[in-house]
Write a protein that binds this DNA or RNA. Sequence first.
DNA 1: CGCTAACCGAGACGGTACGTCGGGTCTTGTT
DNA 2: AACAAGACCCGACGTACCGTCTCGGTTAGCG
Lengths: 189, 189, 189, 189
Amino acid sequence: MTRGPHRSESSRRAILESAGALLLQHGWSGLTVEGIAAHAGVGKQAIYRWWPVKSGIIADALAEGALLPSLHETPDSGDVLADVTAWLVEVAQLLGVPGRSDLIRSLLGAAVENEQVAAALGERLGAAPSAVAGRLSRAIESGELPPDVPVQLMTEALIGAVLLRVLSREPFEAGDARDLAAVMLGQRR
Amino acid sequence: MTRGPHRSESSRRAILESAGALLLQHGWSGLTVEGIAAHAGVGKQAIYRWWPVKSGIIADALAEGALLPSLHETPDSGDVLADVTAWLVEVAQLLGVPGRSDLIRSLLGAAVENEQVAAALGERLGAAPSAVAGRLSRAIESGELPPDVPVQLMTEALIGAVLLRVLSREPFEAGDARDLAAVMLGQRR
Amino acid sequence: MTRGPHRSESSRRAILESAGALLLQHGWSGLTVEGIAAHAGVGKQAIYRWWPVKSGIIADALAEGALLPSLHETPDSGDVLADVTAWLVEVAQLLGVPGRSDLIRSLLGAAVENEQVAAALGERLGAAPSAVAGRLSRAIESGELPPDVPVQLMTEALIGAVLLRVLSREPFEAGDARDLAAVMLGQRR
Amino acid sequence: MTRGPHRSESSRRAILESAGALLLQHGWSGLTVEGIAAHAGVGKQAIYRWWPVKSGIIADALAEGALLPSLHETPDSGDVLADVTAWLVEVAQLLGVPGRSDLIRSLLGAAVENEQVAAALGERLGAAPSAVAGRLSRAIESGELPPDVPVQLMTEALIGAVLLRVLSREPFEAGDARDLAAVMLGQRR
DNA sequence: CGCTAACCGAGACGGTACGTCGGGTCTTGTT
DNA sequence: AACAAGACCCGACGTACCGTCTCGGTTAGCG
């Protein structure tokens, strides 16, 4: 075992939660290490010691679920279109919460500087193997979708469409979710 | 009429070009007004006078084509899939140039802070009415596509997929372009 | 003439005065650039721009008389002992003011790091050619003192004795002044 | 009785020696507790436990002779001038060693913050009753000097002159030592 | 054709935040 | 109980840029 003092779990959590709260309030460009430290009641060095790069804090906060709620597990009703639609509608609802869109845009800002944030954001929104990506794969296995469907590309197109809406400050509503799912999967039923 | 000298065109161009060069070199987070002014041989005030917000410079540079080359006009061969594929392949080639992907990621960073940049970036990549979006609309008019195809969503999905690849630092190659176009339009031929 | 903005005289004075006030309050080891800047209502850069080394501020403040009052010009009554005694008594009175001794001790701290401070402090206390050092030289010229008297060493011994008292936190009073003058010049009358 | 290990003598010595070495290298303002701890292979707490104030380490190191060599005992040949001159010449030689002057200047820095350092430094240089101060007292007792000679002031003037030279970065050489002794005691032979 | 106001370069200014250093305290496991 | 190691909160460091401002100088175009 290593001797001496160990990393303080309470500080770690306070930092992640403060980072989340301040990211929501001030956006990515307004997020400062100094602000996080003050809000968390922590010294700056306690941050720099463990996160040499600021965006790393966001990556961790995102991965721990301190920023975005978890989506429900994508269901498997046997009907891909229905399942994907359900997921996309849930994403649309997620975006419907006031401020959520701004938060995700801020996360995009962090993702630009940090690959981990990009990956974590993608996974949170459905790129995880346990989510849509997985559902599509299973659809191929079950013969519901032809084997040549590029699962990753399709997932990226779905999430990318949502994020592009976020970027352009336009809403992405349940109707859009249904249309998008339909146009990408509908004819294959 | 206003007296005295008017806005210096040479300064304006020097600023936009310097902004582009420095964005490429240092990324969005490393782009500073002071750096642009020094590189352009211009006073800081000459920048603040005309662009109160830094990201506005990027929006203008982008709109003037100082950052990304223009894509060819999307052709209209009568075959939507072929035309969309051609466009998407061109986008893939654009991304293949070394550093281009980083540049676009930097532009995403600016787009997070500035809606104009987001819009300009979208247009540059194909969301302009004269580009893919327009081609899809015409396909509906000509009956090549059913009238209920959501043109905007489809365009967003196509561009979004590309941008998500940029965000996750993965290549988007010609093969991906073809697969993506096929999966979204193929079965409608 | 140089173009552009010029050095702000008001900032310069505010900095010197703040430095003096804070040196008096907190001592040399408690003097911070940040504190000076805040007290003077000035940005830190305005200090670092002109004084790369903190002790330089003290040197300037001292040279401008913002820290210690000027001594009277050493008189020339024709009696060296009387004149030197008068000066030394004045120095003793200077030290008698509450806090003055602490201030001079602080100045010694700065002098350790900066030769200019040492020089300015010496001059303020009598090493200037116009002060005791000069008076002693004139005494040699007039035959009042033998020509082999080492003026500089004698001046240093006089001031050094005073400063050593300051260093050891013991008072240097008028009686000491008279005794010291007498023991160094008395027998030569 | 206290249980467990008592104060580690080896740590104590390592700390004092490291403090001396680092004071010589980096000066008083560059001397850090952390640096001493690292150099001595000791935990910071082992320092703070025994020396609540940093300058106390210097005071101890000085008192133990870890910083300056001991001067010879001031001789008593029956000739005060000769004896004082001998001492002062030895002080001049002490200062002649490269780096010695810087070290003493650093000690002055510590003395500004800590009276013990000031006292210890004075004693090391001759203010101890066993050194010059004592020799002068004995000279009065033996009638070699008149009884009204202020021994302390004279000692302070001698040492003060030397320290002022140190402060102003000028050498104090054997010739200065002889001149100074002569001017202060010469005529009393 | 000369005035004068808007623009220009340069860069100092009051600020905020950066990332680092060190101070002094506290915690952990070892001796 | 003292030790080494080192994490902790905190304050200051010296630097980089922000956006504003103040300089001299240099053009227009209007009077």
